[in-house]
């Protein structure tokens, strides 16, 4: 689905991504993990074509990302940046309808409005369809942004810290929703800070450290030594009823 080969990127000569190679399978739900500044957001931007790799390649369905137009890419891949606000008021319906932008040549048609309405109902946002987006809670706004991403009918959704600033309930709701999308065949890649949330909902993990992949694979990659080495925090890994939990014990 997506293949990264030796991807490198630097901001003003300062290397942020130092040769990442990885493949994402269709329908996988991958957590992109790592401490602040490890390059998670930059990697998402590189995959989505917002940034261009200075070395290496990003391929989407076998095609170089650089050769795909922004409009074409938007039909293939949706991106949900960190929490965002509109400068001017917009309704929830209009925000989700905006996801149809890559398909609209002059004006949204009947199909675009129908798809939007279906997604709103599916996400339980139908009662607030005509409300101002900026007046919603953080959790609701994040749901709207994911709904907009889905309106793009993409095969890949990238999310930059989708659970940041959300309360416990909304964190779980959002990740549950993303898991369902992955089960439905959409490839989901989300930068996440909370290791336990990632362990609960994601099937694949990539741990970045200083712009490089330190570990990748299933939950077996986690070890107390690895976490201490990357995050500088001593933890204890506990297994309970088939699930894995990481408990911080004390800082290094």
């Amino acid at each position: 689905m997506i293949t990264l080969s030796g991807v490198q990127f630097a901001y003003n000569g300062f290397p942020v991504i130092k040769g990442i190679t990885h493949s994402f399978a269709k329908g996988s739900f991958t957590a992109l993990l790592g401490p602040n500044g490890s390059g998670k957001s930059t990697l998402l931007r590189l995959i989505n074509g917002i940034l261009t790799p200075q070395a290496g390649t990003v391929e989407v369905k076998g095609r170089s990302a650089g050769s795909i137009s922004a409009r074409e890419m938007a039909r293939e891949m949706a991106y949900v940046p960190q929490m965002q606000y509109n400068t001017f008021p917009a309704t929830v319906f209009d925000t989700v309808l905006l996801g149809r932008n890559p398909y609209i040549s002059w004006s949204p048609g009947k199909d675009d409005r129908r798809i939007t309405a279906e997604i709103l109902v599916r996400f339980g946002l139908d009662d607030i369809a005509l409300k101002d987006l900026n007046k919603l809670s953080g959790g609701q706004r994040q749901q709207v942004f994911i709904a907009r991403a889905l309106a793009q009918q993409p095969s890949v959704i990238l999310l930059d810290e989708p659970t940041a600033n959300l309360d416990l309930r909304h964190q779980h709701e959002i990740l549950l929703l993303l898991g369902e999308l992955a089960t439905g065949g959409i490839t989901v890649l989300a930068a996440i800070h909370d290791l336990n949330l990632a362990l609960k909902y994601c099937s694949e993990f990539i741990i970045l450290d200083d712009g490089q992949v330190r570990a990748e694979g299933g939950s077996e990659i986690f070890s107390e030594e690895l976490i201490e080495d990357i995050y500088g925090v001593r933890t204890k890994i506990i297994r309970h009823e088939g699930e894995m939990f990481i408990l911080p014990t004390e800082p290094l």
Partner: peptide, 20 residues
């Protein structure tokens, strides 16, 4: 007009919605 609506949501969002 649709592209301007997209731009209002931020540069990264607009780019991901297919706007140059």
């Amino acid at each position: 007009r649709w592209n301007y609506n997209a731009l209002d949501a931020g540069d990264e969002t607009a780019r991901s919605l297919g706007v140059n």
